[in-house]
Design a protein around this nucleic acid. Sequence first.
DNA 1: GGCTTTTTTCACAGAATCATCATATTTTGC
DNA 2: GCAAAATATGATGATTCTGTGAAAAAAGCC
Lengths: 226, 226
Amino acid sequence: MEGAAILVVDDESRMRKLVRDFLVRQKYTVLEAADGEEAVEVFFKHKEISLILLDVMMPKMDGFEVLRVIREHSQVPIIMLTAKGEEQDELKGFDLGVDEYISKPFSPRILVARVDAVLRRSGQKQDEVLECDGIILNKSAHQVTIDGQEIELSYKEFELLAYFLENRGLALSRERILNNVWNYDYFGDARTIDTHVKKLRSKMGKKGNDIKTIWGMGYKFDPDAE
Amino acid sequence: MEGAAILVVDDESRMRKLVRDFLVRQKYTVLEAADGEEAVEVFFKHKEISLILLDVMMPKMDGFEVLRVIREHSQVPIIMLTAKGEEQDELKGFDLGVDEYISKPFSPRILVARVDAVLRRSGQKQDEVLECDGIILNKSAHQVTIDGQEIELSYKEFELLAYFLENRGLALSRERILNNVWNYDYFGDARTIDTHVKKLRSKMGKKGNDIKTIWGMGYKFDPDAE
DNA sequence: GGCTTTTTTCACAGAATCATCATATTTTGC
DNA sequence: GCAAAATATGATGATTCTGTGAAAAAAGCC
């Protein structure tokens, strides 16, 4: 799976760059196409493409056109990127062979999670659970327990804690957290993270201390030694 | 039963892909044929096919033709796929040895349920019953009781509750619910789920609280602890 | 064809969440 | 210790999402 080639199709170069960055970090190889025709061309030239990320809205030849053409010859997994308000299109694609949808704007975590899931789908389906220091975060159930006690987290708090647990022991700058947990169209203040960390800590009770402040730098999830 | 081979026969490649996706997710192995002649050919080449999904309307050799030919040699279970308005054909098929009908468009749940049922039919015949927290949902009888008291649900409400019970404890996004419980040709608003959840909750009385809202995410069936 | 039931859509109110800001507190370098 | 800088906290308004009721549309049913 590592190093699988992914074709990103979007007419906006910024969007392609954005998506590529997210994927390259996960050790995927990324190819790009700026419009539907180029996509078809690139796809049939490179036989080894494992997955296509396809924007719906494109000039000349839209995502569904591309989908149709490619589906005449190939069963490669395809994830469609839809802008807000295009949700009604979502099912339109399923009988054409769309594997998954991601609506813009998305967070890097969501993008990577869906790509991983689609690529893994043929394999075994595992419950996605993160555990550390008595904190159990179950992504499938969207549930967190601490020492057996369930705690209620909001969506952002949940995502944030998941990100901490996935990067335990690592010093995470605010910017990095923002770039991974928040949607890419968020340009607000990084200090908003402080507020979420505060709430997270308070909801986590004494385990809130596992989220360490790194002064002048950011935060780190790091359970106290016993 | 796991990994049983299923032959999907339909002249539309999109429909084959659609059906295959639904079945592959359930760990079935899928073979395809694009027309009647190919179906017969494939079937007699692969002796281990456990079930055939057969579209009625096909050029050259229609579903009933295929049925007749195969029935001369084999008692393999056969499910016919009929388009809307072909219901009158249904009786025609039963005395030719059709095991089940599914009319298009169908929902993933229906397809998988019928396939499972037909494959199990030769084995022990068990009532398909889901039970949780005093809620008893009997698929065969299409009946739901809560603490012994029967409640009346519409078709969609029933399907929705069944889906919740089959995925208890799992956080289900609206998109996912739509993709599993609604027919593949539904392009409407995901908020329609809210309305169904509302009605379901109210009909379920205090047990309606078992359907939890996951804010910003979707819903989850999760009975309160006692 | 009319009638009933079911399903979907819509609009609005209410609730929960999120981002921001002002202020208090802590940490660091000196 | 002290000042400067960064973080923690609490409050607030804006935003987003959900619940609800009613109306419209669609599907079934005599």
